[in-house]
Design a protein around this nucleic acid. Structure first.
Length: 152
DNA sequence: GCCAACGTTGGC
DNA sequence: GCCAACGTTGGC
């Protein structure tokens, strides 16, 4: 089982939205590296940090579990969706989604600044300058270290 | 709102 | 296939 960090803008979809919904489709990824990662590496049973991006503060807000294989993201076929891709078609889908399940929300969001200042967590992918991918690998050491932070 | 990073597009 | 222009992400 692998560990991940997956980003969402809380103004679009937050950890509290996932708590309410219980289970949700993780859609809208339009980056080929992330698409390939969803296809080749992300598996049901994997767990992920739910990371709030473009937020105040940005940081890790909780935990979810991947509960499906990757499948064609239906929003790419929907002209009404902001994620519509006219160059994609149902017989040759370009983009993938996975389903995720709420596990828990942290009692506080762990801000990026705290991760960056931490001796072990400062090396996390999400701390790298210019890192824009929305699904990032997390090592077991990093996972455990985050869970060991006070007040979460 | 600014801007760095970096992926994508398209002219050549 | 190169590379400049452009668009997007996302921290700050």
């Amino acid at each position: 089982m692998r560990r991940w960090l997956m980003k969402s803008e809380p103004s679009v979809y937050s950890i509290e939205d996932l708590r309410r919904d219980g289970r949700s489709m993780w859609e809208g990824c339009r980056n080929y590296l992330v698409r390939n990662r969803l296809r080749d590496e992300v598996r049901p049973g994997d767990t992920a940090f739910f990371h709030h991006s473009n937020a105040n503060p940005s940081g890790i807000a909780g935990i979810m579990e991947v509960v499906s294989e990757a499948y064609p993201d239906p929003t790419q076929f929907d002209p009404e969706s902001p994620y519509f891709d006219p160059k994609s078609s149902p017989d040759r889908p370009r983009w993938l989604a996975v389903d995720v399940q709420f596990v828990r929300a942290f009692a506080r969001v762990v801000p990026l600044s705290e991760l960056k200042a931490h001796p072990l967590l400062g090396g996390m992918e999400v701390c790298r300058k210019g890192q824009r991918l929305s699904v990032l690998p997390v090592t077991e050491e990093e996972w455990e270290a985050v869970l060991g932070l006070p007040g979460i």
